[in-house]
Design a protein around this nucleic acid. Structure first.
Lengths: 137, 137
DNA sequence: ACTTGATCCTCCAGTGACTGGAGGATGTAT
DNA sequence: ATACATCCTCCAGTCACTGGAGGATCAAGT
């Protein structure tokens, strides 16, 4: 039998609250956990990877329905490849925008962070970075 | 007098609910809005940019305290440059991680999206993409 | 001037995604 | 055997909105 993890271990390894893990099970983001003889939840490394994915996804601002649809890509072993491709494509555009915005913010913050050495306060373009250029109103 | 916007205009232009704009005013993310003679809120393009920043920031997964601290960089005209640089630096590491994760996810999704044309279902690396490589346990 | 429909106001209740705590059982280390 | 951490369930609270009631105001058309 490979290494099994208690809920607390999983929580520590992923930076998740124990209650949150139980919550994810309740709403079906994580599979119903196996139980030990005494009724405690027991996990393996697949659960660890899945939870890690969920947590990082949440930190990136994906909603739970979005994460569900991303997880669906992994959950369907090889059926309905066309549908999987459609889900993937639907997310790709959004991800491109996110990356672009983060990169603009990165540039703006780098400017702020380095401006002090340059002598005086930088022209602060932080809002402009993320506000979006489409607002030329 | 330059162009003034009603709360509904601001909502439409930024994709925000009217109630959410009032909420942001209440918690101090947006300045207390000017009012017309009849008591309606009135906005300008600075408010539009600020709200646009807030909304995009939220979509990128930044919490309201984080957004507050990013806005602080723009709000302080030129006082305490060192503090501003510290805030900027604190966010930069995090942003680098976000970008890297999104790029890995982008690669994984592109693989899924293009695999159908190649003939058979791709080995789905979506979870692996975001789960993080530090979990080699 | 009047009506109609959209928009605004305040206030307050509800939702999504957690977070924390009470009360009690179980595991582990001395 | 005693302690102390960890687990269980259940339920209440928080954060960031979201929606609706009840009522005033505005802008357009007749």
């Amino acid at each position: 039998m490979t290494k099994r993890l208690a809920i607390g271990d999983l929580a520590r390894l992923t930076g998740t609250k124990v209650n949150t893990i139980r919550f994810y099970e309740e709403i079906g983001l994580l599979p119903v956990a196996l139980r030990t003889a005494s009724g405690r939840r027991s996990y393996d490394t697949a659960d660890l990877r899945r939870l890690s994915f969920i947590r990082h996804g949440r930190q990136l601002g994906f909603s739970i329905p979005e994460i569900r649809s991303l997880l669906a890509l992994s959950d369907q072993p090889d059926r309905d490849c066309g549908e999987a491709a459609a889900i993937a494509r639907a997310h790709l555009a959004d991800i491109g925008i996110r990356i672009a915005r983060l990169e603009t913010l990165q540039t703006a913050l780098t400017e702020v962070a380095t401006s002090c050495e340059g002598g005086r306060a930088a022209e602060c373009r932080v809002i402009e970075a993320i506000a979006g250029t489409e607002l030329a109103l």
